[in-house]
Structure formats: structure tokens, C-alpha cells
Nucleic acid binder design. Structure first.
Lengths: 246, 246
DNA sequence: CGAAAATATTGATTTTTATCAATTTTTCAA
DNA sequence: TTGAAAAATTGATAAAAATCAATATTTTCG
């Protein structure tokens, strides 16, 4: 049984959990969560019982070069974070999923987002007001440390990404992309992805034709199996070797 | 007239400034400085009258993948911040000069540095204990905001760098490098640089031979003049155009 | 279900960039 | 100053990757 509370959120009678709005209980599943240092009161202040927003596959959540006072917290589904370059070429920086948190590069810095985020599967997320976030930053030291740590890690990630994209040949870059999907996104060596070949190419900094040819080579070397949108890594050791030395 | 104080710092009788040690007066020249929100007491705590360190051209200040509890603040000279990739290829991320500040990616995150910094001219810098820095981060909110802002900006810089390096042809990348040197480092269109052709190539993600050929093309198109280590930008409009559309 | 549209694959060719080798210029220390 | 070493330049060639075009496969939707 469910009933609707004063903010329009569906609440479950049995477990007392709110189900279609953003609130403190949204963020408590995971010890890795950036919000772990906030009190319940602070979390409530942050999200203020906002409705969750749903996006269909392909919809734009945040558009590059626009100002937005929102910070995104993913609840369900996957989205790609990418930069739209000149000449229609896109560079996918990373894929985000449940619990991931995007400040957009505008935090304390004009609120301009430097990348586009769009859904690659149906997405549910909470939109957090960045003014409230910065308010909590200044009043909760542990949270501030956590937020800075997030940015430091993001920095390190971008650096290693930059080297990978600029100093490796195509097979090495594709191997990196496949291992990233296995380890960070799908958490299994056999996965069905909603990413198109073009999007896999945008992650690996090459054309879709080149990507297809590399996948073909990997198949012929029995490193992976593919079947339409399904990819299985059958020889991870080789893939790691290629990603390092490629 | 100068005299030596109890920490071994040379102090000028006339202006009462300390001249070879790091102290509050080191950081107050510039309103852009990240330390502007610290009180004199906090600054003194941060640097604790340490001697300035000098490096000769070519010396390594911070080595990639080593732990260090220092944060670098540049007082004089220039240094390159670069990633040492596999196969001996280096990628220069940026050049730092007076007043620049490097936390190294280890802040609140294990103190491991993810890049190497080495002097490209004689360098004087202060080494700040990162433990003291994090201490001040938790006790001075304005400083915390400033530090986060620095990291946010660095993030945005890395993103735009990543696109530039991956989506542009060589002439566009060289044009970007030359404009960066003009606008961010030397602040003049005619400069003599201590960067070798190999280092300019490492900034532009190409081989030194390719870099030389592109510079040659620019010369023949009357966009720049070069004379050994001296470079003069004579047609900035064209260079900007190439950097955008290249 | 089946046709149209979108996506993926394959092959041929061109463009871009790196590599290798030889030569010239610059730097720096004896 | 001078001569060896380092750095820069130039040319020829090879490797890597993109482009273009044709075909095949998958997805979507009436």
C-alpha cells in the first residue's frame, strides 16, 4: 500500500520509504557516497523533498556551455558525460550511474557547465540546488573535505585519461574502454550495452569504422566475443596487456 | 643593510622584509593568490619561516608516483608539470610560474603525486606541509572555498586541454601552444623561451620533427618569426583562427 | 509481420603523423 | 676561442588512422 504525502511523494506504508522524490533516504545506501558525512537534517535541507526527474534514453540532462544551478545525483540508469568539440566530434569523458554525482565544473565558479550529460538508458536522478550545496560546504567540514577529495580524484582521473588518449595506439585505447566498462560500469566481463559503436568510438577517440575494425581484431584473437550489443571479455589478461603496452 | 634573524632568514633593515625564507610576505603581492583569505597568523603557521628552495634548470622538483607531503608554491622562475607515459613519451600538462600553486593530486588522497614537476629555468619556491594546508582548509571556510575553486578550474582546464589534444590536427595544436605561451606564461607576443623543441612538442602531443615542420609552415605564412630560442607571433589573428579550426 | 530507417560492417583509398637517417646549427665547457 | 656534444632541421619512407563508398545487419514502428 502506498499513500501520497504533502509534497506529492509516494510513501510506502510498509517500509515508510518515499519512492518518487529525493530525500535523505536516497543517499544512504552506500558508504562510498559523498553525502555520508551529512546529518539527516542537512540532507533534507539539500534535497528538500524534490520530485525525482526521469529522462528517456537520448535525452539531454545538462547542456554544455549553459549555466545551471543544479548538481546532478544519479539514482537509476546510466548517462554519458561528454564534450562537444568542433566539427561535431564528441569526446565521452566518462559514464555515470547510480550514486554518481556531478558538480559540473561550475561550483564556486559561475555555474557554467563545461560538458553535456545525456541519458544512455532511462535515467532517474535528483537535481540538487548548488547554492544549498555550497552552503553545506561552508558549514560541514567533513563534507567539504569529501567534496574536495572528489575533485582531486576527478583531476587524477582526467590526467590518466589524457595520457591514455594521447599516447596509445587504437588497440590500446579500445582495450582501455572495454576494461573501463567491465570494471567501473557493468562490473562483469559479459555485458549488454546500450552504447552504440559510435559512442564506444567517442570514448576511445577514434572513428566508428576504426573501432569496429579493432573489435574485429580482438574477436579474431579470441580476446572478446561480440553479438550485436553484447560484449564478452574472454581473455582479460591479454586485454590488460594491450591496454598497457598498446 | 641586511641582518640574519633567528631562523637564518636575511631581513632587510630598510623595508623589514625577509628575503630568503618563506613567510607571510611571500604571498601578499597578488590579489589572485589563493592565500589571500588567510590571516597573517595562518600564513605564518602554513610556512613556518622555512627556507626557500632553489632548483637549477632541469632539476626535478616533484617526481611522479612518489608520495610527498609537500605542496609547492612558486616564487620565481618556471617549471613544467608533465606526465611521464610509457615508452618515454612525456605530456606537458602546463607550465607554472610565480605565484602558482600545485597540490599534486594527493590532497586528502594519499599524498601520491601523479605527475613530475621539473625546473625549465632557475626556480625558487616554498615547500608547504600539506598537513598544515588541510588543517587550514578545515578551519578557514573562505580558504576552503578558494581551494575548491582552484580544483574546479583545474578540472575545466584539463577538459578543454583534452579536447584540444585529441580533436585537432597538428597545426591547431601548435597554434594553441604558442597562444598559451603568449597569454599565460610570457604575457608578450615576442618571447625567448627556455623550452626546447622537444618540450614544445611534448606540450602539443607530437614528435619534435613534426613540431619543427609546423613552425616552419607558420614562418613561411608569416604568422611567426623564429630565431633560435626566440619566437615572435606576428599574425595573432591567423594563429587564433588555426587554433580554433585546425 | 515487414518495410523503412538507423546502425554496423567491410573494403579501397587518402590523409595525417611518426620514424629513421643525414645534415646543420647551437650550446657549452675545456 | 674552439671543438665536441646536444639540439634543431630537413628529407625520404613507413605506419597509423581517417575518409568515402558500398553492403549487411539490426531496430523501429505502422
Amino acid at each position: 500500500m502506498k499513500y501520497q504525502d504533502e509534497k506529492g511523494c509516494m510513501v510506502c506504508n510498509e517500509c515508510d520509504r518515499k519512492q518518487n522524490c529525493c530525500n535523505a533516504s536516497c543517499f544512504r545506501d552506500d558508504e562510498e557516497n559523498i553525502f555520508k558525512h551529512l546529518t539527516d537534517e542537512e540532507l533534507d535541507y539539500l534535497v528538500d523533498k524534490k520530485q525525482q526527474i526521469r529522462y528517456k534514453t537520448g535525452e539531454t540532462i545538462i547542456k554544455q556551455n549553459t549555466a545551471s544551478t543544479y548538481v546532478i545525483c544519479m539514482k537509476e540508469g546510466f548517462a554519458k558525460v561528454y564534450i562537444e568539440g568542433e566539427k561535431g566530434k564528441n569526446l565521452i569523458v566518462k559514464i555515470i550511474g547510480k550514486g554518481d554525482f556531478i558538480t559540473g565544473g561550475g561550483l564556486f565558479n559561475g555555474n557554467i557547465h563545461h560538458f553535456t550529460i545525456s541519458a544512455i538508458s532511462p535515467v532517474t536522478c535528483c537535481l540538487i540546488d548548488s547554492g544549498r550545496l555550497t552552503q553545506l560546504f561552508t558549514q560541514n567540514t567533513n563534507f567539504a573535505v569529501e567534496l574536495l577529495r572528489t575533485h582531486t580524484r576527478q583531476n587524477n582521473y582526467l590526467l590518466s585519461r589524457m595520457v591514455g588518449l594521447t599516447q596509445k595506439y587504437m588497440p590500446g585505447r579500445v582495450a582501455e574502454t572495454l576494461l573501463y566498462l567491465k570494471n567501473e560500469i557493468y562490473k562483469t566481463g559479459k555485458f549488454s550495452t546500450t552504447l552504440s559503436r559510435q559512442e564506444l568510438a567517442d570514448m576511445s577517440n577514434m572513428t566508428k569504422e576504426s573501432l569496429v575494425r579493432i573489435l574485429q581484431q580482438f574477436k579474431e584473437s579470441n580476446i572478446i566475443k561480440t553479438q550485436a550489443s553484447e560484449i564478452e571479455i574472454t581473455d582479460e589478461a591479454s586485454l590488460i596487456n594491450i591496454s598497457i603496452n598498446g
